[in-house]
Amino acid sequence: MSSLTDSVAPAARSAVPNPLARIARNYYLRRVAQSIALMFGVIIIVFMLVRLTGDPASLMVAREADAEQIAEIREIYGFDKPVVEQLTTYLGDVVTGDLGRSFLYRDSTLELIVSRFPDTLILAATALAFALIIAVPLGVAGGSNPGRPIDKLARFVGVLGQVTPSFWLIMLLIVYVGVKWGLLPTNGVGTWKHLVLPAFALSVGAMGQFVRLTRSAVLEVRNEDFVRTARSKGLARRAVARRHITRNALLSLVSVVGVQFTYMLGGSIYIESIYARPGLGQLLDAAVRARDFPLVQAITIFIAGFTIIMNLVTDVLYGLLDPRIRHGG
């Protein structure tokens, strides 16, 4: 009996895990924990930045406001309390989903954001789809045929996409495609037609980067030893290209796609303002112009939070696609 307990004891000890140690071992749990910590860091930094620029109450009132009015604002928003107390109150509010009230719209900032965000999300998602649908086949074709005309086209699109400013392109598209040729609407939202021009304009930067990255990844993977192994198995050229070259090459695209998607949310500020789309970008534009500091702060935190979530999704996706990351401690 004693020998049994002896042999069981070490296993039982390791079976009562330190929860922190378990989180550290699991790749996904570790990334989630990191993301939560990062989100708190972002909120604290945004909160502090506003206080570093001076008295937030004076930012919130009209320039000609007198000291009494400022003092009143200060009291309403609690700016007269110690900073640490303000921070804990604010963190408590954020955790319970209260990001403050907009000065301009006299409404909950979170509700404003939630009502505007879907439009922006659709715009960015469509732009991302445009970029991927054009860039991946072009990059693969270019990388698979180095020096051929298709490769020259891929390189040209890659550079052109990356150097074309989207705010300039959207104006050009409105003038030609919208006004002169009358093919697509020149502003607003509504049908899918309203999405084409702004999404395309928003996609070109990412498209350029994706083409270049896909092309160079394919070029690199083509020369890997495992591609030679695949050929030595007698696989058809197509099967080698699809299963061995393209799959491995696209792995390097995953991380960039996540980053580009969050850039697109930022890029939507110009596009939405120019194309008159009532999305999050336009809301931010209006908030900045009106010095609506609670709304600016809320949007900043929201976009930061979205970026962190996107990065998390990217990492999880990476882990699913690349077993080396999943297993590599």
């Binding site: 890997e224 030893d225 495992f226 030679r228 192994t229 695949a230 050929r231 030595s232 198995k233 007698g234 696989l235 099967a239 299963r243 061995h244 799959r247 491995n248 792995l251 696609l321 690349d322 077993p323 080396r324």
Partner: peptide, 30 residues
Amino acid sequence: IRGREIGMVFQDPISSLNPVMTVGRQIAES
């Protein structure tokens, strides 16, 4: 011919195997 008549083994087994495909699938392909 390749794989069916003549099989080939290369020098460096880590770089000669596809890192993101299970070994079972790499055998099954042939």
